[in-house]
């Protein structure tokens, strides 16, 4: 690899008061690569994504975007976040704006894209995500699955360098998970660089090039989904996968 990875995380630590949430995370996501972060609730997956997106301050370590240290205090966060896309578990759509206004808000306000152009592009993306004719609806009038697709379109509308998915299927009914999974697999096929925190092992298996298992703020095991799911090495990984297997989710 000659070009630097799109995202690089070096020795990142983070504590909330006494509680150590991240204990020295090292991670690199190359262009067009998708990495899945798995692990129990509270293992630090979401916090890691929020730290990379500069929504949380880190205590130590560095995060690099295209080789530039973005966690340096002299770097202005909005400029960094403009280059990253984030999709949240609870969608975080803006209820007072129509679907198309939700999607064009960042392109128009943060990137200075002319409104007409942004709307045109929003419509293309909506069509690609099976949401034709929904542009003027309000988020409250959409189903959970539709809202989550709008959230993904919103994050894509700014053409980010990397897309962060934070438990994007956790708030959805089981029958809607497949739909989102399918869309994310399409994105991966189109070359999007992704970092995916998930409880849904389908993401790990079908989308991710590499799976990282987090336990108490550390990546204790990493590798391809096939290898890790078939023959986990670390005892915590074994325990975690056993629990998923028992719950019928693997």
């Amino acid at each position: 690899m000659s070009a630097p990875p799109v995202l690089e995380v070096r020795g990142v630590t983070k504590a909330y008061g006494e509680r150590q949430v991240l204990r020295g995370i090292d991670l690199a996501v190359a262009e067009h690569e998708a990495i899945a972060l798995i692990g129990a609730s509270g293992s630090g997956k979401s916090t890691l994504l929020r730290c990379i997106d500069l929504l949380e301050d880190i205590d130590d370590g560095d995060v690099l975007l295209d080789g530039e240290v973005i966690t340096d205090p002299s770097v202005a966060p909005p400029g960094v976040r403009k280059r990253l896309g984030m999709v949240f578990q609870a969608f975080n759509l803006f209820p007072h704006l129509s679907v198309v206004d939700n999607i064009t808000l960042a392109p128009v306000r943060a990137h200075g894209v002319p409104k007409a152009e942004a709307r045109e592009r929003a419509r293309e993306l909506l069509a690609r995500f099976g949401l034709e004719g929904r542009a003027e609806d309000y988020p409250d009038h959409l189903s959970g699955g539709q809202q989550q697709r709008v959230a993904i379109v919103s994050a894509l509308a700014t053409q980010p360098r990397a897309l962060h998915l934070d438990e994007v299927t956790s708030a959805l009914d089981p029958e809607l998970v497949g739909e989102i999974l399918h869309r994310v697999a399409d994105l991966k096929a189109s070359g999007m660089t992704m970092l995916i925190a998930t409880h849904e092992m389908g993401f790990a298996r079908e989308v991710a090039d590499e799976v990282c298992f987090l336990h108490e703020g550390e990546i204790v095991e990493r590798g391809s989904a096939e290898v890790m799911f078939a023959a986990p090495e670390h005892p915590e990984t074994q325990r975690f996968l056993r629990r998923l297997l028992d719950a019928g989710r693997l």
């Binding site: 929504l55 976040r81 280059r83 949240f88 975080n92 808000l105 943060a110 994050a155």
Partner: peptide, 13 residues
């Protein structure tokens, strides 16, 4: 607060 987080994540100031 998730509304602020959502807006900031999009790159808004």
């Amino acid at each position: 607060p998730s509304q602020m987080a959502g807006a900031l994540a999009l790159g808004l100031t």
